[in-house]
Amino acid sequence: MSLDADTLADRRRLKRRLFFWRAGAVVAVALALIIIVSDGGLPLRQSHSARVTISGVIVDDRYQQEMLEEIADDDNVKAVILSIDSPGGTTTGSEALYEAVRALAEKKPVVAVLGTVAASGGYIAALSADHIVARGNTITGSIGVLFQWTQLQDMLSKIGVEMKEVKSSPLKAEPSPFHKTDPRVIAATQEMIDTSYEWFLRLVVERRAMDEATARRLGDGRVYTGWQAVENGLVDQLGGEDVALAWLSAEHDIDEDLPVTDWEPRYPELGFAGLMGRAMGHAFGAALLGATDELTGKTQQTKRLTLDGLTSVWQPDR
């Protein structure tokens, strides 16, 4: 009888523990879903304006492009605010972002709000919007395309290293850092740069309703303050998000009091464990969030800052 009573008591304790684990799992999943929705992972089921942040180096980001497609198809999104703070990035990435925003703009009004820097590819992103707002001290412009390489031949010769190569034609894998650049390589590279630059200028001409001569004069690679950009027709208005909302109200009858909600791309690396960590952090505080980050790894995707190929990026001399 004593053994049966002990066994029964153990079973009851096991059932209670199982119940608590199950309840905890349900609560955790619910919290994770709340975080996904509140962070823009899923469309909110209420009318709002979507804020899309374009920051750091711009690369060809298909998850960001998929998010823009979702925004375009979500009837609850009434307008889009592009919050841009970027020195630019790859020309291909800027082109892909531009095209994705223009496709979105066919369904929703889009206004760009420029932060500290919106230059080169960052300005291409701004051109994709229907209206551009900048602070007076915003750094923008830098209309141009860049291709750089390092020349290592002299340094290698000093340490006794020589690079040998066999290739199918003189222009293959050129320009190279391991030998002096042939004039034919310079000419071919310049042609490539010119093609991309002409594309950039066409965007300025078309999107800013500007004649080609003015676009070329302004598009000599220099940067402008927000004040200068407005004066030269590269930006529409001075101000911040409040000015952007006022424009949406005046031009598209969007209520200025409509909630503005951040949308973020859903990167696969986040995973369920990452969402759980973020949910627990929101629920129980920053200290626990730090602990769960250690267990689950990074909870936010960091873009690869690879700048292979042509770049449209502002790189001030240091």
Rank of each mutant, 00 (worst) to 15 (best):
T189E: 06
V205A: 04
G219N: 02
F200L: 06
Y224G: 10
E212L: 04
S169G: 06
T140R: 05
L146P: 02
V161N: 10
V204Q: 01
E162P: 05
M155K: 14
I186P: 06
E212F: 01
F147A: 09
K180H: 08
Q151S: 13
S169R: 15
Y224M: 12
V204W: 00
M210A: 11
I193E: 08
I143P: 00
T214R: 09
R135C: 10
T189Y: 00
D154R: 05
R184L: 10
E191F: 06
T138S: 01
S168T: 10
V145S: 04
A188I: 04
K167G: 04
D211W: 05
R207V: 04
I139S: 06
L156P: 12
G160S: 03
S157M: 07
Q148W: 11
P175I: 03
A215G: 09
K158T: 10
Y197V: 11
I143R: 02
S142A: 05
K167F: 01
K164V: 05
K164P: 00
M210L: 11
R208Q: 07
M192Q: 10
T138I: 05
T225A: 15
V223F: 06
K172L: 03
S168M: 01
V161G: 07
G160L: 09
Q148G: 11
R217D: 13
R135A: 13
N137Q: 05
A215L: 07
G141F: 09
R222N: 13
A209W: 00
E191L: 07
M192W: 07
Q151H: 03
D211F: 02
I193Q: 12
L201I: 15
K164R: 12
A213D: 09
E206L: 06
V205I: 12
A209G: 03
D211S: 09
P177I: 05
E162V: 15
R222A: 14
V166E: 08
I139H: 02
Q153D: 03
D154N: 12
T189L: 08
A215P: 04
T140H: 02
L218T: 14
S157C: 04
F178K: 12
G141L: 10
Q153M: 00
V223T: 11
Q151M: 03
G160T: 03
T189D: 02
L156E: 12
P175T: 06
A173N: 10
E198Y: 06
V166P: 00
D194V: 03
D194Y: 00
S168N: 10
P183M: 15
T181K: 07
T181P: 10
L152R: 15
Y224F: 15
P170Y: 09
T195S: 13
E162N: 15
S169K: 15
A213C: 03
K172T: 08
A188R: 09
V145K: 02
I193M: 13
A215C: 08
L203K: 04
N137R: 00
P170S: 05
W199D: 11
M155D: 14
R135T: 09
D182A: 14
